[in-house]
Design a protein around this nucleic acid. Structure first.
Lengths: 242, 242
DNA sequence: CGCTTTCTTGAGGAACATCAACCTTTGTGG
DNA sequence: CCACAAAGGTTGATGTTCCTCAAGAAAGCG
């Protein structure tokens, strides 16, 4: 396979209707549409803040398309990446009762985002049980996600963390109708490392190691998962540590 | 100070009305009472599961008193501690849309817990905006908490993590009307280590180190924070790592 | 086309895990 | 009441993983 076809393959054009809209429980796409009617889509350039820690909390944001990083920025400027929201995700829910946003979300590529005034979405939730339930479900799922990553940081070594990271991206792309085995990493090694509690050098070395083992093919941001079963085994490994 | 007075001091008798009830925003104690009316208190022995991963999700649980650990248990039996709920906390919110509980919560001492059918609390939330808002706030705060610990695991070394852990407990005890500087650790070194991504030996060594530095006094489960300012400096330290 | 950013790879060192021994406390049954 | 076992905790010696520092290559960008 030459570079040209790779380029095309990595275009990530949709493979039919995104399953996260098709299969969503209790027709949550209707609810999403209802909620989105409360705001207006905005296109945002790469490397731009959607909201910053300290900003007054007035809205949540629905990601229509694109990829971003959610971060916590310390006083001294160090940044901790907390996750990589993709399209279909809802941003800002961790700050509902805080008055100000507690995290900073930065776009990694060109994004389309709908800003939804929180007052409006709350008022709608008071009227429509389905909207309220939608919010509960989203926040509940977000909590489960965080639990999963806390466990990963506690139980897994470097190789296993990277495997888990790749599989998580793979599943999320699949749920959105993209290829689960070939995709672009929109984030740098440093950002992956921050998220996984590793240094960028370690991430780079793990990628090389996984490639030598025939589990993946990595060329800069382009990645192909070659042996998903082996990656799963790695990520769920009874690690030597602990 | 002899052992006898220590024993008394560590009794953790309340210092007036718990501030988490007094100062709660928008009189959330009313709301708590309303919600608690949906269930009945139950006393649970130490080392007992309140709910287990895989259990059908039917209820959330309000902790009336006691301490517990929230864990994720892997197929191979390894346990990852995700947190230590105390009285006033609400359990099970991460499983609302999952059908089954995703975590296992085990009591660390004698606990009093109110089981609240989720259907009932949801129905009440549909009727009363304040209840719905209470749930949003609790889940939002829980998400922020998890973010904080994710950042701690990513940015802090062993000493700093333990300092952050002690300060977190201190603040939570203070918010509940207990002494912020003298309290009992209801969990083992192994459980602390699991939570912080360290081994029990490392936790033990860090306690010894902090004691030598005059920041704390530790005797088995009894702990006194001697130099809170220094602990804060440690926990917020510009760690050498990363 | 120079400049910056990102990535890769190597060499060496530090932090923490592992393995092991021992101590203390608590609980149990004779 | 004591003997014993089990669980939890401390400390030391050693090992391994991953971090740090460094250099160079490749890609992106004005």
């Amino acid at each position: 396979m030459n570079l040209q076809t790779q380029r095309v393959a990595f275009d990530q054009s949709k493979m039919g209707t995104p399953s996260f809209l098709r299969n969503a429980s209790s027709s949550s796409d209707d609810i999403v549409e209802t909620i989105l009617a409360l705001g207006r889509a905005r296109v945002i350039a790469p490397n731009t803040a959607i909201h910053r820690a300290g900003d007054e909390f007035r809205s949540v944001f629905y990601v229509r398309s694109g990829a971003m990083k959610r971060t916590l920025i310390q006083e001294d400027g160090r940044e901790q990446v907390l996750g990589f929201p993709l399209h279909g995700d809802l941003l800002g829910m961790e700050s509902i009762d805080a008055g100000t946003h507690s995290t900073t979300v930065i776009t990694l590529d060109m994004c389309s985002v709908v800003e939804i005034p929180y007052d409006a979405i709350e008022a709608l939730a008071f009227e429509r049980p389905k909207v309220a339930r939608f919010l509960y479900q989203r926040m509940s799922a977000a909590l489960r996600d965080e639990h999963g990553w806390l466990a990963a940081l506690g139980l897994l070594n470097a190789d296993e963390r990277v495997a888990a990271f790749l599989l998580d991206l793979s599943q999320r792309f699949a749920a959105r109708g993209f290829s689960p085995t070939r995709f672009l990493l929109r984030m740098t090694r440093a950002e992956i490392g921050s998220f996984l509690g590793l240094t960028l050098e370690t991430v780079s070395r793990v990628f090389s190691r996984l490639q030598k083992l025939g589990l993946v093919n990595v060329t800069r941001r382009e990645i192909e998962l070659v042996d998903v079963a082996a990656l799963v085994a790695l990520a769920h490994a009874t690690s030597s540590i602990h």
